[in-house]
Design a protein around this nucleic acid. Structure first.
Lengths: 209, 209
DNA sequence: TAGATTGTTAATCGATTAACAATC
DNA sequence: TAGATTGTTAATCGATTAACAATC
């Protein structure tokens, strides 16, 4: 009984959190969990969890709760982890390489098809098993073989320009690690910003009380 | 006319965004801006901006708007950028080093006093001008000279344990880059999570519609 | 069966938006 | 002065919480 009304961003932002906790529970061999127990773990109310999940279907069972593994699988599916999303990384500097080395893209259902950089020393090599191409081949390569996500780890100076190119080349989403506001107002493009500075400044505020 | 009622997290999360845009405006030589113009830039309503700012004081002027530089300065101050916060980085792996190399801590009013790692090759060196100490000296060094913020870039396996040590050593905040839930429930400790996976999964959901 | 816990409806709470008098 | 734009109060909207019948 999927309900495609319109999911609020508040709910969407909580889905990965549910997933993270369910994954940990599953790894610890926990088979079932009630909304109240999950609430305790996640720091949310049982009511909110049931409300959130009910946006997508009926995954629980009265008197029992939720099966950890199947709820985990359902949420993974809802979040698009089984859509086979493809992505390219643009910018293989320290941050790009740290991400490539540490972040388990495959685990989240994202396949990296290429890395782009301007450094001649990197061209032709592979990083984390992904080939590095020169950035000036971005247009032709992506035109020939579109991808879903552009991961932006370029220096701030070329962030906006690169984002524009990615947008024109038809990516559906940009994962933006530059501290720049991309200012793209295309309705069909999603920009997810990872603004470290915003995060640190919030922390700074909260410890300054 | 500061009003210390209780600022909602929604407002706190928008402060860095205001700051970012004001900084850019200032760099472009813009001297004054109205709430509606700032709203257009930031994608928020003029009403919300005025409402938000009024939590902290009266920074504008009727018929004129806000002075970009002074509003920027005010917000910087509100966010604690002038508190002289100190921080240590724990974990000098790829991510830690990328952060050290790229992120302008000083610009946000945070002074790094030390880096801790277990790799003997790194001990005694400096990264981005900050000395690296062995992690087993964390307790004695922080006990002797407390810091405000612990930046957690250790591998997931030791995240919880390291966070606990930092908490016991009196840090006020933890900037958590591990994908782990730290599960510290100390009332006087603030944990700011940078969960890359949550961010990517939200993006994944949003492009999957 | 009796106890537990769901999904959902209704009530509450908080956050955003609109409106406007005050005033630069 | 007249026009613009603030800070703030009131109205609206949305999100969270509480309650409970349904049922495993």
């Amino acid at each position: 009984m999927k309900k495609n009304n319109k999911i609020s961003t508040a709910v969407i932002r909580r889905l990965p959190r549910y997933y993270r906790h369910l994954e940990a529970l599953h790894q610890n061999g926990v088979v079932r969990i009630s909304s109240s127990a999950l609430g305790e773990r996640t720091g949310l109310t049982a009511s909110q969890i049931r409300q959130d999940l009910s946006c997508f279907g009926e995954f629980g069972q009265q008197g029992y709760g939720y099966n950890v593994e199947s709820l985990m699988t359902e949420i993974a599916d809802i979040m698009g982890m089984n859509k086979g999303h493809t992505a390219v990384v643009v910018g293989a500097g320290r941050l790009g390489r740290a991400l490539l080395a540490n972040f388990p893209f495959g685990h989240y259902g994202v396949t990296l098809t290429a890395i782009y950089d301007i450094d001649p020393k990197l061209i032709g090599t592979t990083i984390a098993g992904v080939p590095v191409y020169p950035t000036n081949e971005l247009n032709t390569r992506l035109a020939a073989q579109p991808v879903d996500i552009g991961i932006l780890t370029v220096p701030p100076g070329v962030a906006a320009e690169t984002a524009n190119r990615l947008a024109c080349l038809g990516v559906k989403g940009i994962w933006n690690f530059t501290n720049m506001e991309l200012g793209l107002h295309l309705t069909d493009l999603v920009v997810e910003n990872v603004h470290f500075s915003d995060s640190l400044l919030s922390l700074s505020y909260m410890i300054s009380e």
